[in-house]
Design a protein around this nucleic acid. Structure first.
Lengths: 101, 101
DNA sequence: TTAACAGATGCAAATATATAAATATTTGAC
DNA sequence: GTCAAATATTTATATATTTGCATCTGTTAA
């Protein structure tokens, strides 16, 4: 028998993990670059953001692990992209909420 | 002279702080209860969620500090409510992104 | 002015996260 | 197979977060 309360807790937990994954300046910047279905490699992102390769890979790993991004390997490169297009909503919302203060 | 890069960094930082504030199971649950312009007291929230009063107050303080909630004192009670209605978008988005997995 | 209620704050222990440096793995070219 | 490029993982250190308890501050009503 399935417990609704439990399900809800799991769902909240999942949502929180997803948000926690996004809630970092560099990771928000990554999402911005991936809006509109764009796909970028680790190297492209690490150069765009000007941060270490290993740090970039780490951030991408977190985003993927928590269900924010997907990745596809093509040859030596791994392309990362948004798992759900609607996630752009979050970035947009943040953009609107942070301009008035 | 203002540095655009710097501004952008500050803005990202602010956005990340706002998201970090939301990114917690209990705090997402709080936002859910406040959708639609509802105002609730600390006690109401602490009873709704079934968590300690002081823990509730801590969470509300974080959300207020990071610009997610506002509060108004009325007599013995303090009512908390969403600062920006559009923040419901984030909760909605999470709800949609967490049902398919 | 005191009792009782509502909320906020300080603190400490447990836990989680961030970063970078070093190292490992995977893949394609030769 | 060997090498180099692209990416991932490991590790260690520093820092931040979460939670509950105890306590403190306001506020209302007796």
């Amino acid at each position: 028998m399935i417990n609704i309360q439990e399900l809800d807790t799991d769902r909240l937990e999942m949502a929180a993990n997803m948000l926690k994954a996004i809630a970092h300046p560099m990771r928000i910047a990554i999402l911005k670059h991936l809006e509109g279905g764009k796909k970028l490699t680790v190297t492209e992102i690490h150069e765009l953001l000007g941060i270490e390769q290993s740090t970039t890979s780490h951030h991408l790993g977190i985003l993927k692990d928590k269900g924010v991004l997907c990745s596809r390997r093509e040859g030596k490169n791994t392309y990362y992209y948004l798992k759900h297009d609607i996630l752009s909503q979050i970035v947009d919302c943040l953009q609107r909420c942070t301009c008035s203060e």
